[in-house]
Amino acid sequence: MFQISLAAARVNAKLKQAEAAKKLGVTEKTLGGYERGQTAIPGHLLQKAAILYNIPADYIRLPVVNDGKHDEDDFFLQSSTF
């Protein structure tokens, strides 16, 4: 399946980062973090962005983000204590 980055989807929709952030209800800094893969974008915001950018959410490629919230190592450590 063909996929593009979140930033490319925004650019293809002819939206500047500040304009898209405002329409998504986040700060420009937050949207930039999602686009650079520094922070994982919540599913509801991904869906909202897909609608705003007029592209199916499945066509947006998301980077792997190790932001400490859902790291696999932490999950396995917690799972092994059951």
Score class of each variant (00 low, 15 high):
residue 9 A to F: 03
residue 34 Y to K: 06
residue 31 L to M: 08
residue 30 T to S: 11
residue 9 A to D: 04
residue 12 N to C: 07
residue 21 A to H: 05
residue 71 D to W: 06
residue 60 I to G: 01
residue 70 H to Y: 11
residue 39 T to M: 05
residue 10 R to I: 01
residue 41 I to M: 11
residue 21 A to M: 02
residue 39 T to F: 13
residue 76 F to W: 14
residue 19 E to P: 00
residue 14 K to L: 12
residue 34 Y to V: 04
residue 6 L to I: 00
residue 26 V to T: 05
residue 45 L to C: 04
residue 5 S to P: 01
residue 17 Q to G: 00
residue 4 I to G: 02
residue 66 N to V: 09
residue 52 L to A: 02
residue 56 P to W: 07
residue 20 A to F: 01
residue 74 D to A: 13
residue 82 F to S: 06
residue 2 F to I: 15
residue 77 L to T: 11
residue 82 F to W: 13
residue 39 T to N: 06
residue 44 H to D: 15
residue 44 H to G: 06
residue 80 S to W: 13
residue 3 Q to W: 07
residue 42 P to M: 06
residue 62 L to F: 06
residue 19 E to A: 09
residue 52 L to Y: 04
residue 17 Q to P: 02
residue 75 F to D: 11
residue 11 V to E: 06
residue 4 I to D: 01
residue 79 S to F: 12
residue 18 A to V: 15
residue 37 G to I: 05
residue 59 Y to Q: 15
residue 12 N to Y: 10
residue 41 I to D: 01
residue 61 R to E: 14
residue 42 P to W: 10
residue 33 G to D: 06
residue 57 A to C: 08
residue 79 S to Y: 10
residue 50 A to L: 05
residue 11 V to F: 01
residue 26 V to Y: 00
residue 2 F to V: 13
residue 2 F to C: 13
residue 25 G to F: 10
residue 71 D to P: 02
residue 16 K to M: 11
residue 76 F to L: 15
residue 6 L to D: 02
residue 52 L to S: 05
residue 16 K to D: 14
residue 60 I to R: 02
residue 15 L to I: 07
residue 46 L to R: 07
residue 13 A to T: 04
residue 24 L to M: 08
residue 54 N to E: 14
residue 17 Q to F: 06
residue 32 G to N: 07
residue 35 E to V: 00
residue 80 S to K: 14
residue 12 N to K: 14
residue 15 L to D: 02
residue 3 Q to L: 09
residue 42 P to R: 10
residue 4 I to A: 08
residue 73 D to V: 10
residue 1 M to R: 11
residue 51 I to D: 12
residue 17 Q to K: 12
residue 10 R to D: 04
residue 73 D to M: 09
residue 14 K to H: 14
residue 52 L to R: 04
residue 39 T to S: 06
residue 36 R to G: 04
residue 47 Q to N: 14
residue 72 E to G: 05
residue 50 A to S: 14
